[in-house]
Amino acid sequence: MISIWFFIGVLLLAYGILVLGAGIYDLIAPPANPVVLNSLHAGVWWGALLIVLGAFYSWRFSPWKGK
């Protein structure tokens, strides 16, 4: 059975890519009505964090690892 942590890793990786992408777009084209503390660019570093976590869990619990 595939580990639940693998499913979590794949989903976080996908979410990380989407959130980081949205964060970078926000950086390039600032919104007309920015959220509070938009200058922190939370989307960029939170997206990056999700990518790192997702990539680690996808690799660590991959069902193909070691085959």
Partner: peptide, 12 residues
């Protein structure tokens, strides 16, 4: 959530 989260983070 609406105060701090822009596109992407809001969906999350």
């Amino acid at each position: 959530l609406a105060r701090y989260c822009g596109p992407g983070l809001l969906g999350l």
